[in-house]
Design a protein around this nucleic acid. Structure first.
Lengths: 168, 168
DNA sequence: CTTGGAATGTCAACAAGGCTGACGTATTGT
DNA sequence: ACAATACGTCAGCCTTGTTGACATTCCAAG
């Protein structure tokens, strides 16, 4: 683990070696497994999957969002999203209200039961995140977020920042 | 939602608020998209997908690894893995050599062409990672890796560290 | 008022990549 | 000899993504 005694050249770009980059790549792979493990487990019994979790998350985050918005956010086709939404609506977790200004639009909201499930899912995911944050400490967390943000596509970063700006 | 305006107590645990955790969660979601985007694009034409990329990556990392090893590393069943390996072998990218000590085992190696594809894929992924690292800087990168490692399941962390120890 | 285009829903068909279960074969170790 | 191991394979299923085609509903512009 120790970072090799460094040939030194002022700024020391050792963190940009292929070795270091590869470790970062593998860390992303394994960490993402842990990241999704808890919600996956919770949804296992409920005949739902990760796609449902993502929809629930973003509907919770942006209540009243439209189907188009959600499509762009999740990066899937309307057909794919529609299948998920249909299941969520049938299960009584999500409500699709016809838009008042534009009645073609469907504004999506969580029902009380949907909100309960959302809380269960995000509690589990947050708990793992909290443990990781606590272990790593505030400085590490700041770096964590900086690197992730720099790794995003421009479009994703735009969406991420729009969400973050809303209440964070 | 917000954890109350910080009672303050020296160490400031503001980075553990639900808000901060949620931002971390969303950052992971969007960043992972970017993380996989480049290899996905490359493999698109080749009638291969992310599963093939993962297999190629770990065969490159651990030349001569067995099917069982790879199964454990990727966290998939042998049937799932077999489908991928069959395609890779048929495409002349991977070679399965019968074990010398134990001839039940198949030891997996990249062919020259497999190694070429591996390089193409990892170059693309590393390039994005490098850009992100460079933007964020060495301190951020250290934090990034710390948080990711803390986020892994124990089993994943074990595997990650076994890989890292091998040459990093 | 009519009509074009946008937003949405839905049907059908398909593919990737997971899964389980069952079975076969070669090989190894007891 | 026999049980266990490592691997391959067939069959079938699920989730979640894709395209293409088409209907509906509605806003807005001519």
């Amino acid at each position: 683990m120790a970072e090799a005694p460094a040939p030194q050249g002022g700024s020391s770009l050792l963190f940009l070696t292929d070795e270091q980059l590869r470790k970062g790549i593998e860390a992303m792979f394994f960490a993402y497994r842990g990241f999704t493990a808890d919600p996956d487990r919770i949804l296992e019994g409920r005949e739902m999957g990760r796609a449902h979790h993502r929809a629930i998350h973003f509907i919770h985050r942006s209540p009243g969002t439209t189907v188009s918005n959600l499509m762009a956010l999740l990066g899937v086709t309307k057909q794919s999203l529609n299948r998920v939404l249909r299941a969520l609506i049938a299960a009584g977790l999500v409500e699709a209200r016809v838009g008042r200004r534009d009645r073609r639009e469907r504004h999506l909201h969580l029902t009380e039961e949907g909100a309960r499930l959302e809380r269960e899912l995000s509690d589990a995911q947050r708990e793992r995140m909290r443990a990781a944050y606590r272990t790593a400490g505030p400085v590490a967390v700041a770096g964590f977020r900086q690197v992730l943000e720099a790794m995003m596509d421009d479009e994703s970063r735009r969406q991420y920042e729009a969400l973050a700006g809303r209440s964070g």
